[in-house]
Design a protein around this nucleic acid. Sequence first.
RNA 1: GUCGGCGUGGCGGAAUGGCAGACGCGCCAGCCUUAGGAGCUGGUGUCCGAAAGGGCGUGGAGGUUCGAAUCCUCUCGCCGACACCA
Length: 814
Amino acid sequence: MSPSRHSGYVPQDIEPKWQKVWAERGVMKAADDSPKPKYYDLVMYPYPSGDLTVGHARNYVMGDVLARMKRMQGFEVLHPFGWDAFGLPAENAAIKRGGMHPEAWTLGNIAKATRELKMLGILYDWDREVTTCLPDYYKWNQWLFILFYERGLAYRAMAPVNWCPVDKTVLANEQVINGRCWRHPDVEVEKRDLEQWFFKITDYADRLLDDLKLLDQWPAKVRLMQTNWIGRSSGAEVDFAIDGLKDESIRVYTTRPDTLFGATFMVLAPEHPLLDRIVSDRQRAAVREYVARARKASDIERLSTEREKTGVATGAFAINPVNGEKIPIWVADYVLMTYGTGAIMAVPAHDERDFEFAERFGLPIREVIAPAGGSSPGRELRAAYVGPGVMVNSGEFDGLDAVTGIERVIAWLDAKGLGKRAVKFRLRDWLISRQRYWGTPIPMVYCDEDGIVPVPLPELPVVLPKEYKPLSENPEFFRTTCPVCGRAARRETDTMDTFVDSSWYFLRYASPQDAAEPFDSELANHWMAVDQYTGGVEHAILHLLYSRFFIKVLFDAGMLKVSEPFVRLFNQGMVKRFGQVMSKSAGNGVSPDELVSQQGADAGRIYEMFIGPPEEDVEWTDAGLNGVVRFLQRVWRLVLEPESIVVEGHDADGALLERKAAQTVKKVTEHFDELRFNTAVAALMELANAMQSHLQNGGERDATWNSTVRVLVKLLNPLAPHVCEEMWEKLGESGMLADAPWPEYDADAAAVPEVTVVVQVAGKLRDRLTLPVGTPEETVLAAALASERVRAQFNGRRPSKVVFVPDRLINLVP
RNA sequence: GUCGGCGUGGCGGAAUGGCAGACGCGCCAGCCUUAGGAGCUGGUGUCCGAAAGGGCGUGGAGGUUCGAAUCCUCUCGCCGACACCA
């Protein structure tokens, strides 16, 4: 369907015209020194995959609609854009295209996507564009890395990695498919221990958790996901002596110190350092074999909860500190070395996993928490009881409520020096090393004399060599001299996780050309925090957590005054077509190019917003798009060719139209602010329908009409800026619509006169009804009837009176 | 398994305690047209009825309330996140 045939509305003519005007006038530029209040409107910057579809564009349209409204409302809007340009796909594409450099592929995609975004009329302040693969940007990744290092937040440690023995390279988790290499489906991935760089995010675990309370404009779901990810638990660490070994003890962590008397065995993780020392000669061979098997098991096997528990007795015994009991020590892979102390006291009566293990290996189960009133001595447990109850079989603690018991037992342990209160987190430190070419080189040097030495700041950036091959195989890159002693030394050849790039890019937008530091503190403090951050829910945990971490570190370093980066967060849904997420590679993509050349950018923008609730996944259909084209044609006719509308009646009501316009101002303003774009579009369609009825019913094109026309054009402008700008000009208005003030909400004009009706039964107040009073008699009647029906149905009585509040009282039923 | 979300016409969805189905798609009828995959007008939850009118209706069952798609309990179904975190 072509929109051009039945009105003067030809998007292909007007859209390029206005895009050029906006660019010339610089309406999208954010002034650092503006007296207006600032508004920082940010969409998550994309990976330039070369796959830009109207699906991704939906996101950017949302950001643009908000930016355009905020500008009209008198805010100085910062609406920048950039590219998450390092990363694996560029390397894969380069390999696939034999010989193409990742940089050429990436920059080519960026150029293409930029053109398409402009074509949709999305206005970014391109002067502030950030591209993370350019030395101008990644220099500051290196600078920040050294800052973290100097603050004790970057450290090196051994960590297991996925290793492909054929490619002799480390694989990302996503490149391991069913325990095998993605490029060699018949080759099993090995676990190797390598020295890796970590950021100490766990130092900030408490603050990252506590400050979630400040983020009241984030989706509850994301806050919950972060809470679970950080996973704070509190309990106690308890030392168990080892039978026959005087100088060693094993420390366990438990959240249930109240069940200490029910510990009937102990379990160590296969990697536990003391395992080798305590194991009995008799069990040594079996334990060795078990540990070797556990190491080899793939993550998938080991993590499966379906799998039956496995384990081996060590032959050693621990002494339960509360009662001196000797309990066997086992080794089993359901205990993780990476959480707590790598050792647990097993209380099968009150822990499901321990129960399962005890059943399997015939270990004793002793009840120490009895459900209230349910304690019968010697009763047999059929499953672990994890509910509330009273301590039993627990010596001096018998009879205590379990919750109180936790505190008492901790105090008791503390007093005797056997244990203490402890808090543990599920969150682990952030492993940032990547054995990849296409990323930010980690700016460190290894010297035989001086050890690990950061590259001096004036020597940054450590530039990625042009030649595309692994850095560890590129002597020109890794051969260097020690910044301290000047002797030959070796550079770090790992690059950084690209999540480092994205953890602070929104700060760089504040001073994108700053050559002295990653960002200008004063400007960053001016623009931060981000008022609206929009992006996919797939980043609910990592990107958002890492960014929050970065901001807190920079806050502590005195470089920022805000301690949280994003005030309001929104996660939009995905666009599907033929039931699948839209993408070029899936063959179901619609490109902005196609959309703009067929229906125009404005129709496409409105459709993107009208297609469904912004947080939901939506299905793209061509038929739905046609409805929006019709709407724009109708608007064009109403605004510029009203005489073409056939008059069929003579009962138009100017007051009604005025009220509708005022109500629409309120609705659209609120819905845009709340990002409920679909209902905002519906409200605008209602207004257009009301205007059309008005003319058809013989309404005058008087002052009310003219102001309604201007309200419609302004409210529609953020969604369909090209056509609105054109209509604005044709209406003979001076100045650009982009700078025109947003319509004022006139509450008086919008108010539907209301009255509160109080229905009384037998003199007692029973009901209040607030109702619009258009024609008073009808309204009263409607209210009364509704109430009467209710009374009749419910208790057979009828209302005796209807009371108008405040000033009238009438009898309804004689 | 645990946690969270969602169930409304032929379809996408409105309505967050007050006339269920706004708005749009699709469909039906009519107008206009040489023509229509355009435009305009009217209709379109379901059942009874020629109509006026009325009955039923928000996955299911109960409950709270004068009043429930909306709040509570249970249940069924779908989707998402986490997944042995002691």
